[in-house]
């Protein structure tokens, strides 16, 4: 554990909490992509099967359980409790276009051809693109609520911090995992355009609106 990892994990947790609180306080999930949230739940379910096979630390297990419960909770709020406020007309990204190729790739490029390892690889690849339905939704409506942009910023920061963590681990422990690094870089690159808008608009107190 290093500081980049820890801050990255906390940033990830903050993102999930911001989203949950936004939905809960406003009693509305308008502007949030349910499809991205389903994909994130799928990411956590397939990755954290290792809760049953590998015990690392109390921190590790507790965080995994929190991520699982909160992401499933978000899906529940969106598709059941506040379903009437869900903006499905704008959430039209076809997730099979992500899940199918990612599934195929995780069978082809993995560290070990075993069920758990393939599911872990699937979760890493899927996470890297899971935000696309959300970004697609924003590009369709041309704007995002400020709170939604804070959510995205925290979520993007998490992966960017993980990259710094991997650089640090490579130099201090000689550890690197190519699958995680490549997927993590892809994931971070997807946020770059958003980061630019966030810094130039949201931090200056303006709402995030895409240029027409």
């Amino acid at each position: 554990m290093n500081v980049f990892r820890l801050v990255g994990d906390l940033s990830h947790l903050l993102a999930i909490i911001i989203l949950l609180l936004k939905i809960w306080k406003t009693r509305s999930c308008a502007g949030v992509s349910g499809k991205s949230q389903i994909l994130f739940s799928l990411v956590f379910i397939t990755r954290y099967l290792d809760l049953f096979t590998n015990f690392i630390s109390v921190y590790n297990s507790v965080m995994k359980i929190i991520y699982l419960v909160t992401s499933l909770g978000t899906v529940y709020l969106m598709y059941f409790k506040f379903k009437a406020t869900y903006d499905s007309n704008h959430d039209t990204f076809r997730i099979e276009f992500l899940v199918v190729p990612v599934g195929g790739l995780s069978f082809l490029v993995n560290h070990d051809f075993t069920p758990l390892e393939i599911l872990w690889t699937f979760s890493i690849y899927l996470e890297s693109v899971a935000i696309l339905p959300q970004l697609f939704m924003i590009s369709k409506t041309g704007e995002a609520e400020t709170i939604t942009s804070h959510y995205l910023f925290a979520l993007g920061s998490y992966r960017a911090l993980y990259i710094v963590n991997w650089v640090y681990r490579y130099y201090t422990e000689g550890f690197f995992d190519l699958i995680a690094i490549v997927a993590g870089c892809v994931q971070t690159i997807l946020y770059c355009d958003f980061f630019y808008l966030y810094i130039t608009k949201v931090l200056k107190g303006k709402q995030l609106k895409l240029p027409a």
Partner: peptide
């Protein structure tokens, strides 16, 4: 890579 490392990260 050691299996430990992979499951250590979230």
């Amino acid at each position: 890579p050691k299996i430990h490392d992979k499951h250590d990260e979230l």
